[in-house]
């Protein structure tokens, strides 16, 4: 794929070229939205919104990592969605009892005081990680998703979230530490296949 040529054509309004880029990056954008929002449907909506916005504002792309530029549009779409949710709080996912108490807490809303049985339910690495990611403040979550899940370097992350490089380093360190603490609760429950292999530096 000749990315610069496709971008150039798309900037002149060629939708076919842009759609080729969409097919190439749609998984990355969807996964980013999914990790930030934690909901498949909302993530799909944010991804579609991001691609639409990207096409309309393609002339503002002035070189550099196109993936990072696209990830910035999807991050903005996610922030918009979260702001909308804040303005219009949704009803609880679990039905209330007659006393008005929630009947049961879904596992992805589990807190630090999970019972062993509830922890056993979170037996998939993905759910455990998603739960821990959602416990992070939004700005930490975004940085860790960009750096550790999407594999952007520090400079790209800084340009994506538009904060100084020093802030990125600080947020990433805090986010990793908090994630490690959170994942500690699920550590023993992780299937052997997902056990961490010690990395070499």
């Amino acid at each position: 794929m000749d990315e610069p040529a496709l971008i150039h054509s798309a900037q002149r309004g060629d939708l076919d070229s842009f759609n080729t880029l969409v097919l190439h990056y749609q998984d990355a954008l969807f996964n980013t939205a999914l990790r930030i929002l934690g909901d498949d449907e909302l993530a799909a909506d944010a991804t579609q919104e991001a691609f639409l916005s990207a096409f309309k504002n393609l002339t503002s792309y002035r070189g550099g990592s196109f993936k990072a530029w696209l990830l910035r549009t999807v991050t903005n779409a996610c922030y918009d969605e979260l702001r909308r949710q804040k303005r219009r709080p949704t009803t609880p996912l679990e039905p209330d009892t007659s006393d008005g108490d929630e009947m049961d807490s879904p596992r992805w809303l589990a807190d630090q005081n999970l019972s062993p049985e509830q922890k056993a339910e979170a037996d998939e690495l993905e759910h455990a990680i998603q739960h821990c990611l959602e416990n992070l403040p939004l700005e930490f979550r975004t940085v860790v998703v960009m750096a550790d899940i999407q594999g952007l370097d520090y400079t790209e992350v800084a340009s994506t979230v538009r904060v100084p490089l020093g802030t990125i380093k600080s947020r990433l360190a805090r986010a990793r530490l908090r994630l490690r603490e959170c994942l500690q609760d699920f550590w023993e429950l992780l299937p052997a296949a997902f056990r961490l292999e010690k990395e070499r530096i």
Partner: peptide
């Protein structure tokens, strides 16, 4: 601890997009 957290995130499976987002 930091290395383990980073390693786990990197092992997180990438989901396929549920549909095509072409315009």
């Amino acid at each position: 601890d930091l290395r383990e957290a980073r390693g786990i995130l990197r092992q997180l499976p990438q989901r396929r997009a549920p549909r095509n987002f072409t315009l």
